[in-house]
Design a protein around this nucleic acid. Structure first.
Lengths: 346, 346
DNA sequence: CCTAGCACTCTCGGGGGTAGACTGCTAACC
DNA sequence: GGTTAGCAGTCTACCCCCGAGAGTGCTAGG
């Protein structure tokens, strides 16, 4: 269903409610808005507007004699009404600029720092996901070596990414055989992208002797995992302590669920992968089952190397979040990351 | 100062208070102990004992008409009075056995699972630290390759551990030079343990041209970090959500500090490294500045490969922790890990 | 050394009453 | 018609009070 057209003043009132509520954490009354948000009307008029906004589902009432609180739909409306590409505050701008002024080479490390940066700048928790797909990663080198009781497979990607996998030592494969297998594997996959590497390896596995087959199958699996960005890759999280503060306002069970999810990476990945736009993406409370369960919102933005999306950064916080600040910060960070990644990847 | 000798009954009373308080979370009165903990004495006698224990600093009083609560010193005394090598409960024993029955090859993965296992079994958060020192790790292979805009240094240890480091590309070093540097580095360090590798590399750096020197210096640093177990290694944490539940009883600022520390790995490493005994080690609240600040306790135990210590596992929880269960679980897990690591490392 | 008994202390929880915060409505006004 | 002032109505949050209950410490007697 299409969004109902709102009078300009309704939008202004909604905005005032959201901003005030986020700032103070307390229900907002008509009086406060009338005096605060320079619309030249009396509190009685505001009351009419508030009643209408509540009717539309954008606001709610904890009880008769309390002020209004935005609903999830209200936050959504608020966010959508924001001017595109809003301004970032000076303090955050400087913090972000400062962070990216340091020289860094390893993208993994940069992202780890980014989560801390975002949490510091927004007061919520920062998130980062490395490449959603490794489709464009090219295999630079593969190594196969005996280690301890097994065989260690090492794959180095063109961008400095290293993935490893331990494989049980198959019977009937001596050092000689291992070395020759290493050479033939390297010949097959070097310089290829991950899907190619995977199919090549599978093909080779089908034709190989049983001892070699186990190893090649495992290798193919690793290439597959690398594509999915799983395995060694994970969601990085920084500044959880900020959420612990926030936790006082949440219901108990809610907090537990949120922290469990933060630990269980696949759920987070799912949420952060849902990025459709090229710009900042906001998921508010009940808009997604997960965030609904946590009474939380997620603001995220993809970043690119050249023109291909290689990852996502974001922030989790309460639905009563300072969206303006968070969106601007996430956008700024994603932009800087894109510059950096493009430079690194070039 | 030496611990004062306690009558056997005092110990029994202290134990009863601790157990009851941990179980219920509420101050314990003399009546409850008199009837509960089959000492054949009246509550009046217990009251005398309680007063004495309080005098000694093992118990405290929230207010006049409340029961007693153990102090940190009380928990310590309780723990020290425990019979060595206590019994583990059946449920936990089975859970642990089940976990180690799965076949696993990569120690890193095992440890990650271990943190989850410990948190599940104890209801607190599980910790694991890979090798505290890599003194006995032997360098199996080194690789030096161009990646993106820099140079990637890769070191593979004999036990399957892989460390990497990105280095800025020094001027005046072409692909040729890099390849020869790689060969000479490999010759110098292969088969050596980490301290040797570090000194050899430093020696080579001193004698090398300026371009090579930067890389060799970085390599030496990496060997150093590997010894300290820092760099790529980190503390693994599982089951933080369990602490979030506990958090309701804690002061606000306390929770924040704890979560911050969990994120900042160096603090945790410091705590887990302090393991002096070969058996389970317990740090209770104010016994250490960190745990004091969090009003938390840590139970940890080292595990070995052969006869050398290669890491630590543990649990963080409130000082009012079920020490008996936690200690038994941590001990059991450490023992299993030692078996596994010995097998893998052999 | 132990125990029964008792006076004393302090918290916790419920009841009741009030101040205050908002609302919603109505009637007048522009 | 939209806007406003005014006002009655409603509901919460808070304070105070009080009594029940829990648990102690002490004393006197076994």
């Amino acid at each position: 269903m299409a969004e109902p057209e709102l009078g300009g003043r309704k939008v202004a009132v909604l905005r005032a409610v959201v901003e005030e509520y986020v700032r103070t954490g307390e229900p907002v009354g008509s009086e406060k808005i009338a005096e605060g948000a320079g619309l030249g009307v009396s509190s009685a008029t505001i009351r009419n507007e508030l009643a209408a906004l509540e009717e539309l589902g954008y606001l709610s009432h904890p009880h008769t004699s309390a002020g209004r609180i935005p609903t999830d739909a209200g936050y959504r409306r608020f966010v959508d009404s924001l001017p595109p590409g809003g301004r970032i505050r000076d303090a955050q701008r400087r913090a972000i600029a400062g962070f990216f002024a340091e020289t860094m080479v390893d993208l993994e490390e940069v992202l780890r720092g980014t989560t801390q940066l975002l949490s510091r700048v927004t007061q919520y928790a920062g998130l980062a996901v490395p490449p959603a797909t490794g489709l464009n990663e090219v295999v630079l080198r593969t190594e196969l070596m005996e280690v301890g009781g097994g065989v260690l497979l090492l794959v180095v990607g063109e961008r400095g990414r290293v993935d490893k996998l331990m494989i049980d030592r198959p019977d009937g494969l001596d050092a000689e055989g291992l070395a020759s297998l290493e050479r033939s594997l390297a010949d097959k996959v070097r310089g290829r992208d991950l899907p190619e590497a995977q199919t090549e390896t599978l093909k080779a596995a089908a034709a190989a002797s049983s001892g070699e087959r186990a190893i090649l199958a495992a290798a193919a699996e690793l290439f597959g995992e690398m594509q999915l960005g799983m395995g060694a890759q994970h969601v990085m999280i920084g500044g959880v302590a900020n959420l612990a503060d926030e936790a006082a306002h949440w219901r108990r069970e809610t907090v537990r669920r949120l922290f469990e999810a933060l630990e269980h990476e696949s759920e987070m990945i799912e949420l952060l992968r849902d990025v459709t736009t090229e710009d900042v993406n906001v998921t508010i409370g009940a808009e997604h089952p997960h965030t609904g369960e946590w009474e939380a919102s997620i603001v995220s933005a993809p970043f690119n190397a050249g023109s291909t999306n290689i990852g996502t950064v974001g922030v989790v916080g309460p639905t009563a979040m300072d969206y303006v600040n968070v969106m601007a910060s996430v956008r700024a960070v994603a932009r800087r990351l894109s510059e950096l990644a493009t430079e690194l990847g070039a």
